[in-house]
Design a protein around this nucleic acid. Structure first.
Lengths: 236, 236
DNA sequence: CTAATAGTGTCTATCAGACAGTATACC
DNA sequence: GGTATACTGTCTGATAGACACTATTAG
């Protein structure tokens, strides 16, 4: 029980990111194409080493800005997901990776692949496609992404997480679309409206209404101070 | 983005355990007294290094059996909680620790300190006491334990986790005590009984009833195949 | 006008909480 | 019988889901 570095083989600690957004009505994750072995040419989730004097959350935030090109404040949500450390998950050496879940609002998703550098090397891919093929993602990133999606689905129920997918100001219909896409199920617009506007401190009306859209103008809201939803928005 | 061990300072990866049980009607955690600096003589959560060829879950399971002296099968629950890696959390070197939540059933809790070795060095301490004093636990173990307790409280709502605190066969009253102790709130025995027996696949009657107790004998149950509770048992 | 979307009202089945009442043991 | 605990029944208010209905825009 002595902390002797020399007594233990080297371990690398990395952070990997499951960055989610909505692209044309589907849930999408940010992926990069690997440029080296192993898994050369295969899609992978972005990630990188934790620096010596850097906290884990800070490393995740730094990687996120580096990979997306988005400013730090654009990211509406970043939380630790789980840690994956199977001894053979990377054939080169022991790598323990701390996975994070990040959400990018829809109005900034389009900037990401462009700003991130080589457009061919990074971009949004539908989660359904990525998870459908077992070897579609390098390492254990398929499992990691599946865990991230399940976390997001679950947290939509009892936290205001859905607003993190939306622009700073949004309508009830936009919020409902988030729920429908992430859960993969249609929701009754009328009951959804009544429920979501009835949760205290979830939505704050801005006083503005939409215009130029089809149909009756909608009230524009911004995210409120609630950290938990009471009552929760339960999956159908 | 090259995985060169020499390019990075050494990082130690450990697992720390928040082992919970019920002792005389209070929630208690397994603690050890540290025998060396830093925090010499201070209480800490048990833990240790992850071995080179060992998965994280395996390391947690091994540490649990080593620290408690209980056979592997006695532990009813072991799950990953979160990972803590602040650069200064251990003054000697960079230590990233993967925290696990473990639950020990009440009928095995008494064996633990004895079988674990030096009775003065390890034992059950009330969670309330440990969390009341900020410096009561070494490192960031106070925060870790608080996160573990909140995880347990939350998972009682929508998973059959409470049964992990109980013996293999138990009564509704024993299960209710678990909920009351972990949540720290009294529950109506009659409504609890109706709700808990109404959740499909949560409880399976054994056909046996208690005897020798005061009052009417109670039906004895065993944990059922459910992995989620529908409907959930919500906190008051 | 029509089409489309936003938002409200209402009905019903279900559920949580309060609590009366019944069942069955030990003393 | 007395007391304690297990369990059942009933009432009430809240909630979820289904869906009729009204409101307000674009074209």
């Amino acid at each position: 029980m002595v902390y002797d570095p020399a007594a233990h083989p080297p371990v690398a600690v990395t952070v990997d990111l499951a960055v989610l957004t909505l692209v044309r009505g589907t849930l999408a994750a940010l992926v990069v194409r690997r440029g080296e072995e192993p898994y050369e040419g295969v899609m992978a989730l972005p990630g990188g080493f934790v620096r010596p004097t850097e906290d884990l959350d800070a490393a995740a935030g730094r990687e996120l800005t580096e990979e997306t090109g988005l400013g730090r404040r654009v990211t509406a949500h970043l939380e630790q997901l789980a840690t994956y450390g199977a001894p053979d998950r990377d054939p080169r050496m022991r790598v323990v990776t701390v996975a994070y879940l990040a959400l990018v609002p829809v109005d900034h998703a389009a900037e990401v692949p462009v700003a991130g550098g080589d457009a061919a090397a990074a971009g949004w891919a539908p989660v359904g496609t990525l998870l459908a093929s077992p070897g579609g993602l390098a390492f254990d990133h398929g499992r990691l992404l599946a865990d991230a999606v399940e976390r997001a689905r679950s947290k939509l129920e009892y936290t205001p997480l859905a607003a993190a997918f939306c622009p700073a100001e949004f309508t009830v219909a936009e919020l409902r679309t988030v729920y429908e896409v992430v859960w993969g199920a249609p929701l009754d617009p009328r009951n959804f409206h009544r429920k979501v506007t009835g949760v205290p401190d979830f939505l704050v009306p801005t006083g503005v209404t939409t215009t130029g859209e089809r149909g009756r103008p909608a009230v524009v809201y911004r995210s409120g101070p609630a950290t938990r939803l009471h009552p929760p928005m339960l999956r159908p």
